[in-house]
Design a protein around this nucleic acid. Structure first.
Lengths: 134, 134
DNA sequence: ATGAAATGTTACGTTTCATTACATATTTTT
DNA sequence: AAAAATATGTAATGAAACGTAACATTTCAT
């Protein structure tokens, strides 16, 4: 896949990227500062962006316009990465869907029920709660 | 799958949910106001949350703690939904991965090149750019 | 080679969002 | 009936995402 190489080739200085994306230089640098893009650098320390970088910036712009903040964008990108490795049974890198396990919930519920027999008897028939505990 | 029914059964008043999630009532209501949870209501207009609702709140809490704002959480939930319908070739409901197509990029690049022969000749050998246009 | 233009970095000010703090009305519990 | 819990609405607070300006350095054009 030669196109992948071409797409990641450092080409555009920030001025061009500003025009392509309609983002301010300040914004672009800010996004880099927060790890959302990582353009290459020339010897003189100028940024050089690839096609992929520009794509990424356009996605960022899109999400920003929908009100998503940088932390959210980071999460979204991270979770997208994982989709990619879904064949590899790796340890999910931090975005664990920390669900309340049934066991845990049952424990909490049971404690609650012990501690005070209150809480909406109205909406539950006698047996209903018990059914959660089998 | 009976458990799915049980998990979506309205059970907990907000006070219990506060304890289970360690969120303030105000926060929980705020999240509802922004469409992130939709607890049922009693006749007297009190909220009743299901297991699923509590799970959702815990996820919200988790993401908030990672700095994601409500808009971001909304996007994340939305994109999760879509994974689910991935068998159905439906029109993606708004979170289109609006990539710059190669064609489009080429057009922009060509225009740029026409308009002014400038922009980092230094980093490109003569033939490199031409290669993008085949 | 030299001045002009572009870009880099840094610092301060502004606006918006999530949260907290109150105040009041209504429902539920005892 | 009184007390406790919940609903709703209105400020006040603090941090994030920039705009903007100042100044240094790199690159471009003649």
């Amino acid at each position: 896949m030669n196109s992948q190489i071409r797409r990641s080739m450092p080409l555009f200085p920030i001025g061009i990227v500003m025009q392509l994306t309609d983002l301010s230089a300040r914004q672009i640098r800010y996004y880099e500062e927060h790890g959302l893009v990582s353009p290459a650098r020339t010897e003189g320390n100028r940024r050089l962006f690839s096609f992929n970088d520009v794509d990424r910036l356009l996605e960022i712009k899109d999400l920003i316009e929908q009100g998503v903040n940088l932390a959210g964008i980071k999460q979204i990108f991270a979770s997208r990465q994982q989709q990619h490795f879904e064949t590899t049974p790796s340890v999910s890198p931090k975005v664990v869907k920390q669900d309340l396990s049934e066991a845990e919930l049952r424990k909490l519920l049971r404690t609650e029920l012990m501690q005070a027999g209150r809480f909406n008897r109205a909406s539950l028939r006698q047996g209903d709660i018990a059914r959660f505990f089998h």
